[in-house]
Computed example of a mutant assay.
Amino acid sequence: MTVGDQPEPSPPDGWATVDVRASSLNHHEIWSLRGVGLPADRLPMILGCDASGVDADGNEVVVYPVIDDPDDPRGFSLLSERWPGTLAERVAVPAANLVPKPAGISFLDAACLPTAWLTAYHMLTTRGRVSDAESVLVQGAGGGVATAAVVLGLALGKRVYATSRDAAKREKITELGAVAVEPGGRLPERVGVVIESVGAPTFEHSLKCSAPGARIVVCGATGGPFPKVDLRRVFMMQLEILGSTMGTAAELATLLELCVDRDIRPVIDSTYGFSAIGDAFARLNSGDIFGKVAVDHLH
């Protein structure tokens, strides 16, 4: 990864250019650097999915990073997979991907929402139907999605339990208002929704902590994609195992309004100036983070 000059965006019809004020990092960028989903014939590629900024008309906007892509098996691709990403002075996206930024939220906070926080919101609401649940378990809190799920679960009025191997992170979970649990630890109740991004190391625990009819919503498998699943528990307890990826632009708009209305702000682990992007990546890759690594493009 290097920092350098690339050509100015030349957006096609129906696209818009945004002057980026802030962005944030996701593990998607780490995978891209390892060559996952980013073949050599697309290099050099500007990384980054998340951004907030100002469009050509002076509107403050948040960039929704999902772009329709019939050539991708998913039917979409994210910025930095096929089209240049957000870790730049300017980024081009379809005009429909610009979501108005409410005045009550900063560029830096808004830039933390489009991937990790939107994923967590979609998992809880659309996929997990958390409105039908009293309590939520979040596995592996510390990263962006899991930490977002803790904050949003609490904001939506649910009892939230969250696991972490790290005692310091469990302390931070408690400070957010959730109940911190050691990995594999017994909960005082079975939960209606499980937010699962770890995979093999935690999935058996997720199954055992699920109430009858619970939804286990999966957005990742950072600890391994092949857990042992006791299918007897799945059918006897009538559990749902649901995949989830990202969310919609309309959900991002709703999430922004929720953050303003409930005075919620993203948990930011650390903020780096644009010139220190290498240090930001090193921090993300360290595994020690709690929340989002943000990038202030004005410094």
Rank of each mutant, 00 (worst) to 15 (best):
M1D: 05
G4E: 13
D5Q: 15
D5R: 15
A22C: 11
V36A: 12
P39W: 09
A40K: 14
G48D: 06
S52P: 05
G53Y: 07
G53S: 10
D55I: 10
D55Q: 06
A56G: 12
G58E: 10
V62T: 08
V66R: 15
D72Y: 03
D72G: 00
G75I: 13
E81R: 14
G85I: 09
T86A: 11
L87Y: 12
A95D: 13
A95V: 07
N97R: 07
L98H: 08
P102W: 10
A103Y: 05
I105P: 07
F107C: 10
L108R: 13
A110F: 02
A116P: 01
W117C: 11
L118N: 02
A120H: 07
Y121P: 03
Y121E: 06
H122R: 12
M123S: 14
L124Q: 12
T126M: 06
V130N: 03
D132M: 11
S135N: 08
G140I: 07
A141F: 00
V145T: 05
A148M: 09
V150G: 01
L152F: 00
L152I: 10
A155D: 06
K158Q: 13
R159H: 13
R159S: 14
T163I: 06
R165A: 12
D166M: 06
L176R: 09
G184V: 07
G185T: 11
R186P: 01
G192S: 10
G192C: 03
V193R: 10
E196T: 13
S197Y: 01
V198R: 03
A200H: 10
T202Y: 08
T202G: 07
C209A: 15
A214I: 02
I216M: 00
V217L: 04
G220H: 09
K228V: 14
K228C: 00
R232V: 11
R232W: 02
F235R: 12
E240N: 13
I241H: 05
I241A: 03
T248F: 03
T248K: 01
T248N: 02
E251W: 01
A253E: 13
A253Y: 03
R265T: 15
R265Y: 01
P266M: 02
T271F: 02
S275G: 13
F281W: 09
R283C: 03
A294I: 05
H299T: 14
